[in-house]
Amino acid sequence: MLRYALIFFIIALIAAVFGFGGIAAGAAAIAKVIFYIFLVLLVVSLIMNFVRKT
């Protein structure tokens, strides 16, 4: 999932360099949402791993 966030971030950077503002904003928004979902799943996974080991 983090790979997809990085891919959309790179797409946003490339689009911004070439002047495609709408595409850059859309790709950046998608990358941000995917990254936050990744962070939530990471925290849940760490908590579940900690609870399971005790």
Rank of each mutant, 00 (worst) to 15 (best):
M1C: 09
L2F: 06
L2R: 14
R3D: 10
Y4Q: 13
Y4N: 15
Y4V: 15
A5C: 03
A5M: 07
L6E: 10
L6K: 09
I7C: 11
I7T: 01
I7H: 11
F8H: 07
F8E: 06
F8G: 03
F9S: 15
I10F: 14
I10W: 11
I11Y: 14
I11D: 04
I11N: 05
A12F: 12
L13E: 05
I14D: 01
I14S: 09
I14K: 06
I14Q: 04
I14V: 13
A15D: 08
A15T: 04
A16T: 01
A16I: 01
A16E: 10
V17A: 12
V17Y: 07
F18Y: 12
G19S: 09
F20L: 08
F20S: 05
G21L: 13
G22T: 06
G22M: 08
G22P: 06
G22N: 08
I23L: 07
A25W: 08
A25P: 00
A25N: 05
A25V: 02
G26T: 09
G26N: 10
A27F: 13
A27I: 14
A27W: 10
A28F: 14
I30M: 07
I30V: 09
I30F: 11
A31R: 09
A31S: 02
K32P: 02
I34D: 09
I34A: 14
F35T: 05
Y36P: 00
Y36L: 10
Y36C: 04
Y36H: 02
I37T: 11
I37W: 02
I37Q: 03
I37R: 08
L39K: 11
L39T: 13
V40W: 05
L41P: 00
L42S: 06
L42V: 08
L42C: 08
L42I: 08
L42H: 03
V43H: 06
V43F: 03
V43C: 01
V43L: 10
V43M: 04
V44R: 15
S45F: 12
S45C: 05
L46A: 10
L46G: 10
L46R: 11
L46V: 00
L46N: 04
I47Y: 05
I47G: 00
I47D: 00
I47R: 01
N49C: 06
N49D: 11
N49Q: 15
N49V: 05
F50D: 06
F50P: 00
F50R: 03
V51A: 02
V51C: 02
V51D: 00
V51M: 09
V51I: 14
K53P: 01
K53N: 07
K53I: 12
K53W: 07
K53R: 07
T54G: 15
T54P: 09
